[in-house]
């Protein structure tokens, strides 16, 4: 169900703004929708559209060069605020598979990994240079196997991803299944020990 992330090529949309929170990425009123799929139209909705429903032509994702961009080059603290995973599902719904930023909201970052979206953290100066290249419509290539971001005609920029996260992304693994398979017995063993240490946490629970 999760699309593996191996390599993504294409234009990158530059959004060089700090603290783009998940309310901006996915406005709260659309949280009433309970589906995971089909949320692309709501991504950055209130930046993309005026109150009267007309498009804001100058917003980067409305410009013809970046409408289909699979990569976003963002500012610091991207995806801060609310834990809503809809922010990631909406980006994915627009075909965005990779976000490059100096830092991320932690829950947003974790949500990316769970959905086959690659969050890349790079130093601010490198992100600024990539942002300028993105704004100049240079093609990007993000290669997870090689661990590099490449702007056409320039030397590749290496990035690092946690070992397990990398494997999960490359293979499109579902984390719940992976955990249950690998650690099912350990969880049971821990539970017995935990019950002895803090028995009140197991009191009155009808989990038999």
């Amino acid at each position: 169900m999760i699309q593996p992330f191996i390599r993504v090529d294409g234009p990158a949309a530059a959004l060089p703004e700090e603290n783009v929170d998940t309310d901006i990425i996915y406005p709260a009123r659309f949280l009433l929708i309970t589906a995971r799929l089909g949320l692309g139209p709501y991504a950055f909705h209130d930046r993309r559209f005026r109150a009267d429903g007309t498009e804001v032509a100058e917003f980067v994702l409305n410009r013809p060069e970046w409408r289909e961009a699979p990569i976003l080059v963002a500012g610091a603290n991207f995806g801060s605020g609310s834990s809503r995973e809809q922010a990631v599902w909406a980006l994915l719904g627009r075909g965005i598979r990779c976000v490059i930023a100096p830092s991320f909201g932690e829950i947003f970052q974790a949500n990316c990994y769970r959905n086959g979206v690659l969050p890349i953290t790079l130093p601010p100066a490198q992100v600024a240079a990539l942002s300028a290249a993105a704004a100049a419509a240079h093609p990007f290539a993000v290669d997870l196997e090689a661990g590099t971001v490449t702007v056409a005609g320039r030397p590749p920029i290496p990035f690092s991803v946690d070992l397990e996260r990398r494997l999960a992304l490359l293979n499109g693994w579902d984390e719940t299944a992976t955990l249950l398979n690998a650690y099912g017995a350990d969880i049971g063993t821990f539970e017995e020990r935990h019950r002895r240490h803090q028995p009140w946490l197991f009191e009155g629970e009808n989990d038999a």
Partner: peptide, 20 residues
Amino acid sequence: FGIGASECGTVMAAQCLKQR
């Protein structure tokens, strides 16, 4: 701590989460 919806599914099934 706050988590995403996918992580909620993991907690339901495994009573565990991968964390740093």
